[in-house]
Design a protein around this nucleic acid. Structure first.
Lengths: 218, 218
DNA sequence: GTTTGTGAAGGATTTCACAGCA
DNA sequence: TGCTGTGAAATCCTTCACAAAC
């Protein structure tokens, strides 16, 4: 075990671009859109961008260079243009549908969070396994039994699964999502799920974040 | 600009141990505590740990070796013992007090989240700047004006600031926390705040996480 | 004069592979 | 035999430094 000695075409097929770079692009978008909203120069330098993000200008230029030449020497980057390009690279120039699984306290908070839809993430369905909740309408979504999930994925063009179930059944739910063809999972349950390697999982776990800060405290 | 060519004692004072390693330790703790709860062998190998976390056994052994020799050749690691050691390394063998700033929708969700206190993170105070909310009691906490913050930090031994205010005033609030002596911040606002480099910030931003997944979707 | 884009250098992290111990 | 702990090798990522472009 484990995986790939045949990176003959790993290098070819799977992204030239390092994962860390991809994870930084949304940070750039975030700063740029703050800039667009303010009035102020429509051009920004890697130096300025870097100071807003507490990183080095060279890193920003290097990151951007994986995707093209977006700047002008002597001036910098056009804010609007760069934001547009990055959004397009990230696939943020369209909307993405998501399903929430788990309609307890956490799931309700997720579906009523107003931050998703302005950014193009549309929660269009909700699932649970409790008889008490199935059939109810919460934040405009009719709660369905999990057994409907696979069907809905296709019918409603669901691309993202949001896991908001207790840790005890999270792996099971994630297996169902994967089985249903979901390749992107936002996981609120405090565990590292096992998934095939074409599935991307991002975890949201504030306690985990706190636990890596205590090391630095005295 | 920018920082340190004098890493003469960077190496000495600031952690030998790479930041990435520190960020992985809580993952190990999380798996180990799941193991303790299940019955089953009280010994675990780096191989088993790795398979639970989808990483390599060598990485786990290397990470642990920064802190000592916790295993026994031919057997593996004692689950209880390793969990205890890691908790102690991370400073999780005590409790830590936290203050929440921002008592809107998000702040209320944070203070009523039942996941913090069992892990030793005690939210013992709440702040806001809205006259409408100040003085009310929410989840057992009396909401105070932000001007009380610096005072409370000492009086209530607050070590962690949790930022749950709108993005527009997040930097300002973070400046106040830093000014008040807070060195660890959990930031729910969607921005990368500027802080001195002895302050650790961890961001919780589900939209940001989603935005780095869309790149991989077709 | 200013700032980008980028090979090359340097540093950090991961993986290998095996000696040593139970 | 089985698995850890760890130097050495390999890989990955960041920073440097400067030619080219505006």
């Amino acid at each position: 075990m484990t995986d790939t000695n045949n990176n003959l075409f790993n290098t070819e097929l799977i992204s030239e671009v390092p994962e860390v770079v991809i994870q930084r692009l949304p940070l750039y978008v975030r700063v740029l859109s703050q800039f667009t909203n303010m009035l102020g120069g429509d051009v920004i330098s890697s130096e300025q961008l870097a100071s807003h993000l507490q990183m080095t200008p060279a890193q920003i230029r290097k990151d951007l260079s994986y995707f093209g030449r977006f700047g002008k020497q002597g001036r910098g980057y056009n804010v609007d243009m760069l934001e547009t390009k990055l959004r397009s690279i990230l696939g943020l120039d369209r909307t993405w549908n998501a399903a929430v699984v788990g309609m307890g306290r956490l799931g309700r908070a997720v579906v009523s969070y107003p931050g998703f839809s302005p950014e193009g993430f549309i929660i269009n369905s909700a699932f649970d396994n409790s008889e008490k909740i199935i059939g109810k309408t919460i934040s405009g979504l009719k709660v369905q039994p999990i057994s409907n999930l696979t069907n809905s994925v296709e019918k409603l063009d669901i691309k993202i699964g949001i896991v908001a179930v207790p840790v005890g059944c999270a792996q099971e739910v994630i297996d169902i999502l994967v089985e249903g063809g979901i390749k992107s999972i936002l996981n609120y349950a405090p565990l590292s799920p096992k998934v095939p390697d074409d599935v991307v999982v991002r975890g949201i776990d504030p306690v985990l974040s706190l636990k890596s800060m205590t090391y630095y405290m005295r």
